[in-house]
Amino acid sequence: MATLAETQAVLAVALRRSAPLAGDPELSAQAARIARGNERLSPVEQVDVYREQFWLRHVDVLRDDFASIRHALGDEAFERLARAYLEACPPASFSLRDLGEHMPRFLAERAPWSEDPFLAELAKVEWAFVDAFDGADAPPFDPASIAGRTEDEWPRARIVLHPALQRLSLAWPSHDYRVAARKGGEPERPERRACRVVVYRGPELLHYLEVEADAAAMLDELARGAPLGEACERVAREVGAANGDGASLEALEGKLAGWFADWTSLGWIRAVRFGEGGA
């Protein structure tokens, strides 16, 4: 009699085999020593019922989570990708929600898909939407929390962004492609164009917004918990260097009030902390 551990170990291998068990004589023999079978299904066929379900279930989840990649590749090629992914990154979390978390890295590293970096970028965008959907909440911004603060307090203030906010740095407008593909359209693969995109939760739906480079850099600084004054200096330096025009700190500070108003109304900013304790 096999122990429970031995039984589960054999079945776990058998269920992960992508083709029918009959094609693997050794595994079939092991499965046949475990399953009893009946007059309609042999022991191996009984195990195959579960094996088929393993692949159907997990490929279906990936098909839903990465619909734009399925559009880009077509159904058959996507199925090959999904199966290769599941073999390399078997489901490990209790939740199917996490199944595709390694897809961006897998596509970036594994040939032949790594030869087309647009695919890894699409996966990154798709996964940003997953994370934005059910990421942590934070209380809404309270305007009273900044009432009465003096001008010299703001450089040390740390602005807290919504924890589910996703900031993407893209080489293509992949977010537009994703939306068009998911709406059932036939979008063409876009021309390469660097862009920065924020994915965020609205009151009802997920939204995305393309932002300018300086705004994106500022959001990056705020997300890492930099005090506002330090964030402004660094962004001015970086953006100025990137543009070759030495954008001034003054010009950047001129945009701050507008950004602050926009980002609080969009729900991106959830709090402002004036203490030294950090975000």
């Binding site: 589960q8 079945l11 269920l15 279930r57 078997p90 199917l96």
Partner: peptide, 11 residues
């Protein structure tokens, strides 16, 4: 569950 995999089925 088995080592390294959650099968997501009711075995």
């Amino acid at each position: 569950r088995a080592p390294g995999v959650h099968i997501h089925d009711l075995l």
